Simulated scan of single mutants.
Amino acid sequence: MWRLLIGELYPDAEFFEPAKEALFWRIEETLGLPVPLELVELLRETNGVWNEYGDAVVWSAERIVEDNLAMRSEADYRELYAPFDDLLFFGDSDMGPQFAYVHTGYGPGIVVWDHETDERRLAVVSLRDYLVRCLTQGNDWFR
């Protein structure tokens, strides 16, 4: 399902081996947040998605764990930014804004986070919408 959608949106897409199932449990255990089913399903088909500019639109499962841990444990980040405890970062755009699931009382949504201002705002409500925008509208759709 995800490979088909990605291939339609971005015919030059490269696909990777699926993520190992154990990594989904590691993400949840390590970060204390559930991994949204849509993200699990995508990573079961391809362990990451990159756009034509080389941006990691969806990070690999390994990078999700590593980057989220780093952002939560980096002393400078704790001083500069509001806590990341309710965010599950999974992608970025052009070395700038990063994207994360935020868990709310209404279910997960996807926010864009600006590291310069610490602004966090709802970008889209589903992974499908996120991929459509990232893979068809380039790097500026979220501004």
Rank of each mutant, 00 (worst) to 15 (best):
M1L: 08
W2M: 06
L4G: 10
L4T: 14
L4N: 14
L5I: 05
G7V: 05
Y10E: 01
P11W: 03
A13K: 04
A13N: 03
F15E: 03
F15A: 03
A19Y: 00
K20H: 12
K20I: 06
K20Y: 03
E21Y: 04
A22W: 04
L23V: 01
F24G: 00
L33P: 07
P36R: 02
L37S: 07
E38F: 00
L39W: 00
L39A: 00
V40A: 00
E41R: 15
L42S: 01
L43W: 06
E45K: 01
E45V: 00
E45P: 00
T46E: 02
T46W: 03
N47P: 01
N47V: 00
V49K: 00
N51D: 15
N51T: 02
N51Q: 06
E52L: 06
E52H: 07
Y53K: 03
G54I: 00
G54D: 01
D55K: 02
A56Y: 07
A56L: 07
A56S: 14
V58Q: 05
V58L: 05
W59H: 04
W59I: 06
A61E: 01
R63I: 07
E66C: 05
E66A: 14
E66R: 13
E66N: 10
E66I: 08
D67H: 08
D67A: 12
N68Y: 03
N68F: 04
N68S: 08
N68W: 02
A70T: 11
A70W: 14
M71L: 15
S73D: 14
E74W: 13
E74M: 10
A75S: 13
D76E: 13
R78T: 14
L80C: 11
L80Q: 13
A82V: 07
F84R: 12
D85F: 06
L87P: 09
L88H: 05
F89P: 03
F90V: 08
G91F: 02
G91R: 01
D92H: 13
D92I: 03
S93N: 11
D94W: 12
D94V: 08
D94Q: 13
F99G: 05
F99D: 07
F99S: 08
Y101N: 03
Y101S: 04
Y101T: 05
T104H: 09
G105D: 15
G107S: 08
G107D: 10
G107E: 09
P108M: 03
P108Q: 04
P108V: 06
G109C: 13
G109I: 15
G109W: 09
I110S: 04
W113D: 01
W113C: 10
D114G: 03
H115G: 11
H115L: 10
E116D: 15
T117S: 15
D118K: 09
E119G: 08
E119R: 13
E119W: 09
R120W: 09
R121Q: 12
L122N: 09
L122D: 12
A123R: 07
S126E: 10
S126L: 10
L127G: 11
L127C: 10
L127Q: 11
D129K: 12
D129L: 09
Y130S: 09
L131N: 03
L131P: 01
R133E: 15
R133V: 07
C134M: 14
T136G: 09
Q137N: 10
Q137F: 08
G138P: 10
N139L: 08
W141Q: 11
F142K: 05
F142V: 10
F142S: 12
F142Y: 15
